[in-house]
């Protein structure tokens, strides 16, 4: 079902983890649909020095987030804007059709992190749009958790 590259990024995810006090962080998706991605950026002098991700989701979701972080590391903010879902998919040698939305989520997570960075620093990144607010259904969840 998955290409070798997808399997490789799933089995050996690059840049998985957290960054303390990141320059920007973005979380997208929702638990209801089964995909959540979070990307942390460490940006200095307009260049992405470090990037980390965490993902709740299927094999493709993990692989696309891993690949997206690979593609933006060391890039300038403007260059990072070019890392679209298409670029991520191509770098992974393609995704099954039902999993294309995972690559979109990776793009969105990246842009949400860039948005956070821009907002914190009072800058405008051309072409960047405000991400949809992330909700993880905390209120509803609380009660259910008792059962565990």
């Amino acid at each position: 079902m998955y290409t070798k590259k997808v399997m490789d990024h799933f089995q050996n995810p690059r840049n998985m983890g957290e960054i303390e006090d990141p320059s920007g962080v973005g979380t997208v998706g929702n638990a209801k649909c089964g995909d959540i991605m979070r990307i942390y950026l460490d940006i200095k002098d307009d260049v992405i020095q470090d990037v980390k991700f965490k993902t709740f989701g299927c094999g493709a979701a993990v692989a696309t987030s891993s690949m997206a972080t690979e593609l933006v590391k060391g890039k300038t903010v403007i260059e990072a804007m070019e890392v679209t879902n298409k670029a991520v998919m191509e770098a992974l040698d393609g995704l099954p059709r039902a999993k294309v939305h995972c690559s979109l989520l990776a793009e969105e997570a990246l842009q949400a992190a860039l948005w956070d960075y821009a907002k914190k620093n009072g800058i405008v990144i051309e072409g960047l749009e405000e991400p949809k607010p992330f909700e993880d259904h905390e209120e509803e969840e609380e009660e259910e958790e008792e059962e565990f």
Binding site: M7, F10, Q11, G34, F56, G57, C58, G59, A61, V62
Partner: peptide, 24 residues
């Protein structure tokens, strides 16, 4: 906190075949 398909792929890597009710 985890998703079923990822779990199945990782089990498969350990040669364990199972299934999940996850959307994926």
């Amino acid at each position: 906190f985890i998703e079923g398909e990822s779990l199945l792929i990782m089990l498969d890597m350990k040669d364990i075949c199972a299934s999940s009710g996850s959307a994926c």
